[in-house]
Design a protein around this nucleic acid. Sequence first.
RNA 1: ACGCCCGUAGCUCAGUUGGUUAGAGCGCCUCCCUUACAAGGAGGAUGUCGGGGGUUCGAAUCCCUCCGGGCGUACCA
Length: 1096
Amino acid sequence: MTTELPAKYDPATLEPAVTARWLQNKAFAATTDRRDNRYVVMMPLPNVTGALHMGHAMDNVMQDLLIRWHRMQGDNTLWQAGTDHAGIATQAVVEKRLKEIENKTRHDVGRDGLVQRIQDWAATSQKRIVGQQQGMGCSCDWDRARFTMDAVCARAVRHTFFKMFADGLIFRGDRLVNWDCHLQTAVADDELYKATVQGKFHYLRYPVIGPQAGEPTHVVVATTRPETMLGDTAVAVHPDPATAMAEAIAAQQQKLQQATAKERAEAETELERLRARERDLLPALVQIAAMAKAGRKVRLPLVDREIPIIADTWADPTLGTGCVKITPAHDPNDYAVWQRHPHIGVRNVLAADGSINDNGGRYRGQDRFAARKAVMADLQALGLVEKVEDREIEIDHSDRSKTIVEPWLSKQWFVRMADVPGGVTMGKGTAREFRAAGLAQAALDASAGRLPAPRKQVAFHPDPERYRKMYDQWLAEKRDWCISRQLWWGHRIPVWRGSMPTQKLLMLQPMLGSQLQRDDVCAWILLPDGSRLRPADAFATLAAPNAPAEIEVQICFRDETADQNVGPILQGAGLQLDPDVLDTWFSSALWPHSTLGWPDPATARVNDAQPVLGAHAAGPDALSFWYPGSCLVTGRDIITLWVARMVITGLYNLGDVPFTDVFLHATILDGRGERMSKSKGNGIDPLDIIARYGADALRYVVCELQTGTQDIRLPVQAISPFTNAGEPEKLIDLATAKPGPYLGTFLDPETKQPMDLVGQYGKEGITPAKATSERFTVGANFCNKVFNAARFAFLNLEGSAFVPLRPADLRLEDRWILSRLQAAIASVHGSLQAYNPSAAIGTARDFFWNELCDWYLEMIKPRFRAEAAAASTAAARQVLAAVLDQTLRLLHPFVPFLTETLWSKLRELAPVRGLASAFADSEMIVHANWPQADAAWSDRDAERQVATMQAWCVAIREARARYQVAPKDRVPCRIAAEGATAATLQAASELLAHMAGLAAVEIGPNAQRTPDSATVVVGDAKAFLLGVVDLTKERQKLQQQAEKLQAQIGGIEQKLGNPGFVAKAPPAVVAQQQQNLEQLRQQLAGIRQSLQELGG
RNA sequence: ACGCCCGUAGCUCAGUUGGUUAGAGCGCCUCCCUUACAAGGAGGAUGUCGGGGGUUCGAAUCCCUCCGGGCGUACCA
């Protein structure tokens, strides 16, 4: 079969053909074997919520780059693909559509109905995502793709939960959580964003009960959420307001003294404010503090409850009214106050949907915002509102529903991250078992390299210190991880629980006793005082005379089947399966080992078409072979959410880290520096870029963008939908375009019509438009150049043969390009090792374009002419084939489609390629060996000679351009040179003549100019281009050059004249300067001489 | 408020431990459809390296400070 290359580079036809070939041949398949060197990348699993965007493109391309690079190096590579069920995000999207399209809520369709709909949605998304990834050239082993809700992953989730539950690391407790009233679920801190809203500051007066003479009749508190007063259980005042105030004033005075002129005014105002408070407010606060000590109370209006005045330092006399209402169930700080003063109690006044609950008296059933108004109106009527101020307030919003979240006291499941008395056994039952102080501490030890050997450190790239700090800071808090979500989409929490009379439990003991001893069952008995007992201990305790009458039972089975088998019995006993599901990150945290079949690869229930995870004839099981893995590639926003948790669960389940390297790539921003997002309409679909520029172009540019730790600006343009047929396409820069009527719409500056970049405003009659970025043309141009350079090579490679070559057999340009090739290979490899894709592709590009195309291909053209000597042609062919071979390999991880296509053609025309010996061949370049820099082909002499020739060539071309010599005209040239320069030019004279468009070249110490010659000066020699000159212009040019040189010489003379420099700078630097000075002086002398000859 | 990062050509970014005249790509200007490539070739112009101060023989690079931007954490009664 011969490969037919089209005349023009066309990624749209070339790329799908390559994809098909790779997939048909299962080119990316990973199989365990006996190789020692492995390279494992676990894909940061995309959500099935929607499609991929440019951020994913960056992430996927970086992984593919590393994977292809390692695969070519001969590593047994596994790139684990898959998707994440993304509980809350996906359920939110599907619920929203349900409402929009069918006007139904989840309760209308029921739990099973909703899950079914989400599954359908997920299946569609998965198809789209895989299509996008394959379009980008991702070389994952697709047959091994997993989903966090599939049987293999679900079993790992279940086993991990069971293990943690049995170890006492998972517990259920009352905590203040961020409650999303719209989605009716708890959300994690990471799922929040701050938004500023217009709000009010309400000053409320709580009547003092039985005020004594001279005491204030009311305590005034301020709040932004007056409806929460229904749940107040105390009013707090600072225990010693006078001292606190005095300290604040002293601190402010100190600050004023150190203040710069600019800060002064502000500091003075603040001091003034504090002094005014001290004068006007403090006396009352002192009194109230005394009342607090005396155990006095206020009457909570509207609900008519007596609540105590308490003394707590949380109340700051310099802020607000100096007194604070305490609502433990609805404010984190107040919650903390309650922890310090348990006797005040707690009252939750919100229902799950954000309405006021039974505790809110007559406001019950009102939405919290309606209740806010009602409460204020009623207080107003009672004369209990001191004042109301307008104020901008920053409030936490749920990222999923975009609604305001409420701090809410509720029962949730947690994983204990803090240290545990006696420590935690990590990797229990494995060969890697060890003890850690706690889960978070184990992950901290991993980043610090403190894990017991042979476990490796988890290191961050490309800025180890900076990112480790982020990771460590978050883990150091060791905050308990809230893992329950009140959703229907996700892994259900596998715990049967319920409360029952102690007597009933004791009656069940004979029946349950032995069952509860099994090691695949774990039960806890919870006593009313919060303590938790193993069944064996509990039965003893509960049999005692003063045992509590009612207890709670929690039972977890390790295997899912038990839920079906034993469930009815438990239900009969009054236990229910917990309705909540697990936080999505719980299952993603297991990804690096759940996908490999943990806890038991041999029995992992993979799909029929998938490779087995257990051991097979050719190799060991997937888990022992590929765990621990190699590199995790992701964005820094996910370090805490995911990276840290993977390390924790990996250590906990397997006793070792999931990966040793974490490569954190840049975030992609738009032209304004804002994060790309679908809803803002500034996002780009990779498939749109692929359709327009090709996947290789996308990859090239993405690699080029990844320079280091900096985020990347990618200016986004809309393709104008208002272009008439036949007109050229118009692009509208979204960084400057004015926003349209809705979020994600923009106005076309020409027609002033709105365009919809989100694709959601069809009903509103807004024309949809696609987003693109012109930045990708660079990549397309590069690919086009590669394609054409290869085409040129192919035109001349017919009949190429291999013979062992030695440097001495080769001409200067051959030795030069081979030497440059070695340098390029070494440099690209080094840049990839340093996680610097931009530097890597930059070097590859410079070599390919600026050296191979611009010089070598041009230099060898004469050798392919009919009249050239056969030996010279053959050598050129062989070197060209070898260089192209190595260059394609070097470029393959960056632009895989193009290189794969060209590879086939190269193999046909030059079946054996090599230099001293033949290169190892491979049918597809995806499996070819990565090039290795061979020092034998480094040739400093050739590099120096060609560099000299190039310098002359450029100088001559510049002169030609200046004198407007037609490109085709071949100009006679005389060069006045001596010694080494003359020798070099003599050796390269043929090349120079060819490259600079010269006719006869004469080189000698006494070469003379003609009056009409242009003079070109390089270093210590001069060239005369005969018959091109205008004398006046020539004098001008030489004059300018002389001035420039004089300035440079002046600079160096000054430096050398500085005694400090000569005395203190390293001798080598001084010598270098002296040498430069000498050279520049020679040049200047040459120019002056020419000027003299011209009569200047 | 505290911590981390950044500010270099019109745009997007490089610039290793301080050391020749600060670079690249895109864009711009001039010339060229030269037998791989006009998605190309040859040549050219463009910077008080955010401002100020300091250390040093020498600063884009180190220190201080101010201004501007981003991220993280906290706080907001």
